[in-house]
Design a binder for these strands. Sequence first.
DNA 1: CCGGTAAATTAACTTCGTCAAGAAATTAAG
DNA 2: CTTAATTTCTTGACGAAGTTAATTTACCGG
Lengths: 386, 386
Amino acid sequence: MTPRRQSSRAPVTSPAVATVFTTVLTQGPVSRVDVARRTGLSSAAVTKAARPLIEAGYLIERDSEQSGIGRPVSPLEVRADREFFLGVKVTDRELIGVVTDLRARMLVTKFRPLPSRKPDAVVDGIAEMVTALLAESKAYKQRTHCLGVTVAGDVDRDTGHVRYSPFLHWRDVALGGLLAEKIDLEITVDNDVKAITVAERWFGDGVGANSFALVTLGTGIGCGLVVNGGVVAGSHGVAGEIGHIPVFGDGPVCHCGATGCVEAIASTDAIVAQARTATGEAGLTMAEIVTGARLGDTALRKVFARAGVAIGRGLASVANLVGPERIIVSGEGLDAYDLFADEIRETFATQAFGAAAQCELILRPLPFEEWARGAAAIAVQTLFLS
Amino acid sequence: MTPRRQSSRAPVTSPAVATVFTTVLTQGPVSRVDVARRTGLSSAAVTKAARPLIEAGYLIERDSEQSGIGRPVSPLEVRADREFFLGVKVTDRELIGVVTDLRARMLVTKFRPLPSRKPDAVVDGIAEMVTALLAESKAYKQRTHCLGVTVAGDVDRDTGHVRYSPFLHWRDVALGGLLAEKIDLEITVDNDVKAITVAERWFGDGVGANSFALVTLGTGIGCGLVVNGGVVAGSHGVAGEIGHIPVFGDGPVCHCGATGCVEAIASTDAIVAQARTATGEAGLTMAEIVTGARLGDTALRKVFARAGVAIGRGLASVANLVGPERIIVSGEGLDAYDLFADEIRETFATQAFGAAAQCELILRPLPFEEWARGAAAIAVQTLFLS
DNA sequence: CCGGTAAATTAACTTCGTCAAGAAATTAAG
DNA sequence: CTTAATTTCTTGACGAAGTTAATTTACCGG
């Protein structure tokens, strides 16, 4: 188990309380009867469950606005500044840290380079980041109890162990335990993509969906999957590796050793590499490639088009296999990815089987801070998850 | 809702009773303390939950065998002949029907050609099949209450509506309702692959796995997926369409309109077609192709090898995406599929990402009757599922 | 026959949620 | 201004389901 101090403040004590809390959290201001209707609980149960939450300051009653016949509603709302949460995402070269409120809205964002990838150095860096974030406001220092930390790779969320992280060159690092020695907060460590999926599920485009997929484009290409009420974990620590789905029989060999992976064609690195060989200019940067393609360079446009096809095929695989309600495609600076949005949609439409093509495709950018917001979201989640 | 008569006999009245029943059902004879240990219930709760099940005749106490120190255990076991279940699978050309016991073991199997695919004719056929199956034994007639019917395609299990079934050329057929008019049993209609997945989950190779996939090879190529404690349904009625995952960029055009689908290369039809073009002999049958390949015909062997690669890539996609504990690959007469078992395993091993390759691969044949057994399994499931 | 031991049972208690009745806060009508 | 109508919210009795702790049961070995 992650070293966690008993949070006697924990507002959630029973299933019904958790249901009420999460519905108010995600569905905005709602009246008690509405909560009852949406959850299937009795209105009496909602009243009872709401009381301790109100007393603890997590929910507040708003004044009703429109009034019809009968007793006016008194909608319940989350008191977002009741508690603050920290999220830190560890990348291979920097730390991204945020302070958020209860609804995972970012209040402060900080970036800080990572001099070394050694576990000790990373732990120190995170501790410093935490201090710096909390120093931003007295309120943060007083009302922050949870920290979420995310890392790319295979993480055991329950123990806080990082089993394997290729980007950091880590194997079996007890990150949760090391952090707990230096930081006096309830700490949760998890995989970065899973975390950002949790954020979408509770506070983003995943709200209201029974199942959805979140695809992240960038140096790596990952995918978070929500099915049957939970984020898919993967029994051997691997899941959502949409980047390593084989979509082309004759594609280039991926760094993972397989052939025709999406990531070998559509990751930022792969795009740069392909653009360089296509043009013969070895020093091209991503920015130059994007502007070149925008100006109409056919060779460069072809590289993007091919990437779009690869991604579209990957998305179709997800849709055909698990049939999510929505797929959120989200890249670091999807402004650049407008160059293949059309190809993604077209390929998806032709390769998705039957009704799977009805799956809603949302393309939108993913600012770097969002990754840290995901980390904060898993910290928020500790409030109401077991 | 499916027209279902109130089964006052339903033995399951609470979550704990369901847990006890399913653990005894799937884990064979188990002592009460063991059930408690495995489920996390208190032993008192197990005693209480077991009593009504024993009184209703669903569970029996066995005599303990090995005796150590202390009071000897009295293991609980399912009384398999307490109740019988019917399963009928509707294919495009015949009906397959079975009688099973509580543990979904097949007791009788019947095949019957389907003269017409019209809904009325199918309903009549199923009714006749039911009569014939029940006529096999007086006990069946007395102690059968549930019928499961499965169909390929998009089925709404809750209403018993077949939304779309390409093989039967059906669209919006209220099969459940039509059957209920003629058959005096509790009827459940579901998708065939989902049903057979349920059978594996409770009574087959899926027992004990938190997540697994069942891949069926044949005229179509499908996949049932169990994740987060449930069979994946697909929000638009589509899920598990592993056959339409695009794995080759340059593959043949599939009947679904997409390119490079697994099914366009590895379905029985596709194999026959490819074998015919490879050899130039237009009249080749599957049996001839198999024997030819076994005798070493290189052209034919290549066809099988390519199919194996396509399947392996599809399996790798599943493993990379959802990370199941096991994948059961199961074809109609996998005796023929021994011709590409090696390619499947090899391709899977190279294309699975990292730890996903640890996913256990089980290859084994799938006799036709198994499909009907799946139908019976969803009938059994009604006993303890809501 | 008498402890020792582990399984199963029992009984008292706790927790959670429903139900049904009623209190509260408003509009609409006489 | 009073009364009815209407809808939301609250309350308290009740019941279902599961827990803990003590007790009984059924076997062992001396």
